[in-house]
C-alpha cells in the first residue's frame, strides 16, 4: 500500500498541505480532485518523493520514503508528468526504452512489446517522438513510465499521474484511462490527479477531494460525490444527475442552475 499519513508542507510559513492522509491500494485507481491551488500538485510531489514533507510520513509498502534510495523508489513507483518534452530526436521506441529499469536485461524485449501493445503505440515505434500528435506522445510517455514498473515483482508497484489527460481530446482521454484500468491485474496501484469530475466518476475506484491543503473527502464515488460537497469545494454550483442509460452519476455545472442556487443560498441566509 502507498500510504501518506498526516503530511504537512509549508512554503515560507504558509501551509500548502495540512495534515493530509491518503492511501492507494494495489489494484485500484484513486483519483485526486480539487480546485486549482488546493495543494494537489504539492501533495503529488510529496508522494512522488520530489519534495519531502515538513511533517508526517509517506510509506511505500510499509517502507518509509525517506529510507528508500532514488533507485529503489523507482522500482516501486513510476511517475507520469503532465506533459514531457524530449529534447533530442529519439524515436518512439527509444523513448519507451529510456524507462527500462537498469537491471532488466532478461525480459526487456518482451516487456517493451507488452507495454507498447497495451498503450497502442507499436505502429509508431520508428517514428520520431517530436513528430507525434499530442495523444500519441502521451501514450508513448505512458508506455515509457509503465515499463519502469511492468516487471512482476513480489511487491505491489504504484503509478502516479499528474493530469495526464489535460491536453487531450475526449476520445484520447478515454483511451488513456482505459489503459490504466487494465493495470489492476498487474498488481499496480494508480493515483491520478484529474480535473474532469465525470472522467473521475467513470474510472476511479475511490476518489479523494482536496481543498485548501486538506482532504475534504475520500471514498467511493457515491460516498463522496454530493452536490453540497462538490459545490462547496469547487466554489461553483454543481448538480448530480443520473444517466438514464448507464445509471452512472453525471456531474453538471451549467450556469442556468447557478443563479438558482445563489438565490436559494441568499434565502437561507
Amino acid at each position: 500500500m502507498l500510504q501518506a499519513e498526516d503530511i504537512h508542507f509549508c512554503i515560507r510559513q504558509r501551509p500548502i498541505v495540512k495534515k493530509a492522509s491518503i492511501s492507494v491500494n494495489p489494484g485500484e485507481i484513486l483519483a485526486v480532485l480539487g480546485p486549482n491551488g488546493a495543494g494537489k500538485s504539492t501533495l503529488f510531489k510529496i508522494l512522488a518523493g520530489e519534495i519531502s514533507c515538513t511533517r508526517g510520513q509517506v510509506d511505500y509498502n510499509g517502507q518509509n520514503l525517506r529510507a528508500l534510495k532514488t533507485q529503489q523508489l523507482a522500482s516501486v513507483r513510476a511517475v507520469m508528468p503532465q506533459h514531457s518534452t524530449v529534447s533530442f530526436p529519439f524515436t518512439a521506441r527509444e523513448v519507451v526504452e529510456l524507462g527500462l529499469p537498469k537491471d532488466s536485461k532478461k525480459n526487456s524485449e518482451k516487456n517493451i512489446r507488452e507495454v507498447m501493445e497495451l498503450t497502442k503505440v507499436v505502429h509508431l515505434e520508428d517514428r520520431l517522438y517530436q513528430q507525434l500528435s499530442g495523444g500519441e506522445k502521451q501514450r508513448v510517455q505512458l508506455a515509457r513510465v509503465l515499463i519502469q514498473i511492468w516487471e512482476k515483482k513480489p511487491f505491489p508497484r504504484y503509478l502516479l499521474l499528474d493530469e495526464p489527460t489535460s491536453s487531450l481530446d475526449i476520445s484520447q482521454q478515454h483511451i488513456v484511462l482505459d489503459i490504466l484500468k487494465k493495470l489492476k491485474s498487474q498488481n499496480i496501484g494508480v493515483l491520478i490527479v484529474l480535473h474532469d469530475l465525470n472522467l473521475a466518476a467513470h474510472y476511479a475506484d475511490r476518489i479523494a477531494i482536496v481543498k485548501d491543503g486538506l482532504i475534504a473527502g475520500v471514498g467511493k464515488v457515491e460516498e463522496v460525490y454530493s452536490e453540497s460537497l462538490l459545490s462547496e469545494v469547487f466554489d461553483h454550483p454543481i448538480r448530480l444527475v443520473k444517466d438514464q442509460e448507464t445509471q452512472q452519476i453525471l456531474v453538471s455545472s451549467n450556469s442556468a442552475f447557478h443563479s438558482e442556487l445563489k438565490i436559494s443560498k441568499q434565502a437561507q441566509a
Binding site: T70, Q71, L73, A78, V79, P81, S84, T85, L98
Partner: peptide, 11 residues
Amino acid sequence: SLGEREAFHMG
C-alpha cells in the same frame, strides 16, 4: 533528455 524531474522519477 526527458528532463531532470523525469530522470529523478526514473531512479
